[in-house]
């Protein structure tokens, strides 16, 4: 990890501030989404990313434009970190025609192929085989990208996970498998569902190089991701990165959270990735409290404008129901 830390130390102030802005933006977006849900403007499921912001932001701050990204349904933070403008995310949450998926996908199905963000998937584990295939296509065509596949701890118990990891080793596929271990799959704690508590041990079983890091520190995530992506790029073979994190909210809106006690959640809240980073930026003298407050106001403004944009956007027209079903219709 030593080399990566050097890289992190040389981060310029602009990038540090961008990272802070992005994490604060994701947090604000999620708070607003919860609010819009309560108002009945968002329907279906809503899986918030609050607490996990450092994972997507740290990881995707070092991806290259040619790297493909896939994740599961907890996808708002990933979408933002891939560069989707927040207004197109909120428009999708409201089911509007201006949403990234034209109002047809909703919260769980954000994607923007122009940004090489290949989508959020709602069937647990189902995108891992897709990631293997996308990596295969790069390799086949002689293209340089790495496929970054993010998934939860719960997803590592399903057959797809094992089939995809194995194939990626057998076929030497350039995939970064990134497990966001937030310690629960819905209400089931990792140790109640997984034979091994360190998820990275599963990669071990496939002879895949791996590591396990703290996901509440955005710079640590960034450093580890840089190293892991470097490995995949150089060798053209997979790497497994387990990032330990925590979701501060329920699994989806409306989760009664009977499976964990408040003290546990409070303990983790002390490791809030945004607070930690904020403190770091101030303690190292990179930024003043005022600098960061200005940034936070910008974030509030940005989300407020995005909500305005989304609310003013039209619903998809009735004929949209029949569109985009077949490629040749």
């Amino acid at each position: 990890m030593a080399e990566a830390n050097v890289a992190v130390k040389t981060l310029d102030k602009k990038e540090l501030l961008r990272l802070y802005h992005e994490m604060a933006l994701v947090r604000r977006l999620e708070e607003e989404a919860a609010h819009l849900y309560q108002q009945g403007k968002i329907g279906g499921f809503l899986h918030l990313y609050i607490g996990q912001e450092a994972v997507a932001s740290g990881l995707l701050s070092v991806r290259r434009p040619e790297d493909h990204v896939l994740t599961a349904y907890r996808d708002h933070g990933v979408a933002i970190a891939c560069g989707i403008e927040v207004k197109y995310v909120i428009a999708e949450l409201l089911g509007k025609a201006t949403g990234v998926s034209k109002g047809k996908g909703g919260s769980m199905h954000l994607a923007d192929v122009r940004l090489n963000y290949w989508g959020g998937y709602a069937i647990v584990g189902s995108h891992l085989p897709l990631a293997a295939g996308i990596a295969l296509a790069d390799k086949y065509k002689g293209e340089p990208g790495v496929t970054i596949c993010m998934f939860g701890d719960g997803a590592t118990n399903i057959g797809y996970f094992h089939e995809a990891l194995n194939l990626s080793m057998v076929w030497d596929l350039p995939v970064l498998w990134l497990c966001e271990n937030n310690q629960y799959g819905m209400g089931t704690a990792v140790e109640r569902a997984s034979a091994v508590e360190e998820i990275r041990q599963k990669a071990e079983g496939y002879g895949m190089p791996n590591s396990r890091i703290n996901g509440m520190d955005v710079l640590e995530v960034r450093g580890a991701a840089e190293e892991a992506l470097g490995y995949v790029r150089e060798n053209g073979t997979p790497y497994f990165l387990e990032v330990v994190t925590y979701r501060f909210q329920g699994h989806s809106i409306g989760d009664p959270e009977r499976y964990r006690d408040k003290e546990e959640v409070d303990r983790w809240r002390e490791a809030d990735p945004i607070k930690i980073f904020r403190k770091h930026l101030i303690d190292t003298g990179a930024f003043s409290v005022d600098d960061l407050s200005i940034e936070e106001e910008r974030v509030d403004q940005e989300v407020a404008e995005a909500v305005e944009f989304a609310e003013a956007s039209p619903d998809p027209p009735p004929e949209a129901l029949y569109e985009n079903i077949y490629a040749d219709s």
């Binding site: 996908g105 619903d315 009735p318 949209a320």
Partner: peptide, 16 residues
């Protein structure tokens, strides 16, 4: 049901 994968948007879904 109308023969499309169901969309998220409330009105479109009800149409289907």
């Amino acid at each position: 049901q109308v023969e499309v994968p169901l969309p998220y948007n409330r009105e479109l879904e009800q149409m289907a």
